[in-house]
Design a binder for these strands. Sequence first.
DNA 1: CGGCAT
DNA 2: CGTAT
DNA 3: GCCG
Length: 972
Amino acid sequence: MQVATQPLTNLFLRALYYNVQRLGLHIHPYLQKTIRPLSASQPSSCSLVLGYLQLLFWSRVNDRESVHPSALMSSIKEWMHLVFDPSPLGLAIAIILALSIPIFLHTVVFRASGLTTLPTILLIGPSGSGKTALLTLFERENKPATTHTSQAPLTAECSLPVDTVAASNKYRSVNDPTNQVHKKFLLVDTPGHGKLRHHAFQNVTNTSNLRGVIFVVDATTLGAGEEGLREAADYLHDLLIVMQKLMGEGKSSKAPKELPILIAANKMDLFTALPAALVKSSLEREITKVRVSRSKGLLDSGVGLGDEQDEEKDDWLGEMGSEDFKFSQMEEFDISVEVAGGNVLGADGASTESWWRWKIGALRYNIHEAEIAVGKIGRKPRVAMELRRLKMTTIDVESLEKEGEKKESGAQAVSRKKRKTRDGKRGKIEISEGKEVINLDGSSTEDETASETESEDGGPARKKLKSSTEPSTPSQAKKDLEKIRTFKVLKVDWYYDSVKAGKILPMDGYLVYEGRPVQEPAQDLISTNASPPSRGSDILARAVADAKSSPSTAYMKHGNARYHKPTKSVTRPTHLLHQTTSEHDDPEKFPPLPDYLTKLYSCERPTPLHSPNDEFINLLKKIKTARQLNSDAIGVRAYSTLIASIAAYPYKLTSPTEVLRLPGCDQKTALLFQQYQQTGTLAEVTDVENDARMKVLLDFYNIWGVGDHTAREFYSRGWRDRDDIIEYGWERLTRVQQIGVKYYDEFLTPIPAAEVEDIGAVVLKEANEIIPGYQMVIVGGHRRGKPFSGDVDIMLTHPDPEATLNFVPLITDRLEELGWVTNVLQHSLANSARGQAPVAYKSPRPSGSGFDTMDKALVVWRDIRYDKAKHEKNPNIHRRVDIIITPWKTAGCGILGWSGGTTFQRDLRRYVRKVKDWKFDSSGMRDRRDGEWLDLEGSVVGWGEGKLREKEMKVFEMCGLAWREPWERCTG
DNA sequence: CGGCAT
DNA sequence: CGTAT
DNA sequence: GCCG
């Protein structure tokens, strides 16, 4: 073999590739991206093989299985040499390997499914751009034919050399097994003439297994104002519309998952040609024009005959409401646009190289056509998770069988909840002397991997999955299944052992998971024979859930994200309010609207803890939460406002028109009320509650330390319950999130008012042990009169400003030492940013005067008192406690800022901004014009009993607000 | 159509 | 981006 | 989603 000039890597790759080939395998190229930096110069096969190599390397380093195919051993040795050889190349490779190892733990090798149709690429473009020449080039690899104007679509079966570089003979060796490897595909040329364009468009919509479109333009005719530019843009616009529509249909079986388009700027060799970047921008500019005139219907007749004319009118290319068209707007429809220059007739091979590369990308295998995946995954839930991440929806064959059996025998499905006992986790949360230590280092990874390999689900135990569930139970469902191809996940060992045996071994012992790919429009099929979410780790249920609730892809197709609203009401309410003049709807008959309810800001009106309309309000709160989880912050704002408004209404609502009178409520709110009145519930709430995704998001969102963003992030990783988080993501959680997960249930347990007061008393006592003279107010929900609280908010203040300075660490340390506080989640310096002292928030503060005060600590609390005779360990549950320290001079502001409901707080801030041009927060009030601190409560002197309440009242007064008792600030 | 608490 | 009200 |  010719070794001298070849890097060892290459040799090894080819050896490996040969083995892969012998087994009829293809490497899954979604790995390609990660490897590109290494193999950019040899795009195709080598990078694929490299992807596999990383797996070998990984298992070598982690040497857990001692199985190594002897056929590969020598190569591996060579490879290892290279890696440990301090050559720059070896080093670079080693680094890349190390970085990408986790990615390769999953699916790696795929066998191509028996596709009935070859992957197809369409060639489209105006006449004279050189399409046919390009076709011929690709077909023959080298010599473009001379031009002729094509009349009908021309199809050529082409072979893509797996290694493009091979064409230029750079790395080719005589014995190279990759020489013979070609991937076949169809290249369809379409006529360029305007009158024949419908052929091209029909091809886009009708071609099965369409992988991409190449739009060829003549770069010499694209100068500004030239007719060629206009024509090309025109054509491209219509083409993109067709593609957009196709992709927009989304779920239809025909639409590909993604549809890349290459704009091949031809004839770049001529000096009159526009550079590729310019081609792109001028096409974008021209398409913007086309788009505008199309939407006005002006150019309707200009384009072509027939089909597109009638339906075209209401179509808009790209992002709705966008001023300028950009190719990037097509991403939303999974259409990636790439512009690359080249030259069909060029002598040098590089002239069309970028086109080649694009084509290989478009033709790469994707998991959806795979039949077998091999990976280092031993357990089914993990497989399910990885598949979710790859958006590969399958139905577990095992669970389908169970369904079938159930139907026949009426036997119960043995719901053996297959969650692994979470022993692996114990290493992470250690309990020592009643004080929990969250172990943050990665030391437990080892166990996890180990427990993964030895898990009960993996290995031969799985053997009886399908083949051995013998014909004695000839369920029809099962028989149907046999006919449909399934997607199998096997342990890598199958590959190793196969190579060793020199033949493809039966998969029985290696099968980790077998599933039936879900054909997209098969939803009804699923929902009829499946009971969605009952079984926790049931892949079937998850597949169903996923199929049903994929709002992200479904809605996002149209318009921009801002208008993405999950308003998929099943029972669609009438869109206009019926104005039947029954006595209930007669505005005259409504109870008089209290004058405070004409007020726009919720801080201007009393809002009691309970309202006659609590039931309706609770439904609205659920919609609000749904808005939050769907990243619609503005929707949250809107619902907060209207909830606060309704909560302040002292009468039971009787009609939708009555709702319209309330501030923050409008048509939409009235309709919601109407629906509530008629059905006793709200369709959107029902939808949300039945939505598996929303359930999961809510569960995550309820973890302390996890907000809506992170909840969605967890979901997108494929996690579906807290166990998934613990199993797959524990090391990546922040410390407080780990605590949040650990005490999930305890933190959600309501705290009775008496316990709240008890905790307050303990904190006050200990504060006074440090510095006597402290005063304490329990703020938060408890102060508003809630019989149960979610957490405890203790505000401490002291007449002496020196006492409150830097007090938070003192008190938390003491409480921690005494054992009341088990964890400090967060020490906050929020107030210190502006300081205890009056200081302009705009101008940089003068240094030196006590700005290092920590004003609050968020801690985990547990009562240390328990009956030691009865219990060995402390049985009390963990509580969330906030300890807030405020200097005396702003204590009124502090208490006010910590006592109102969220909406009350917002509206208070909005109010002082609008009415006074002030800026309020719990550390005080400032003037927005000059940033000066305003002393609102200085007129209250002394520090005796009742002074704090007086100070708070003073703040209301100075703001021009009527006093509201804390229990009148329950805005929700 | 911009703004929406700090 | 999380927390607090 | 409502207000100015």
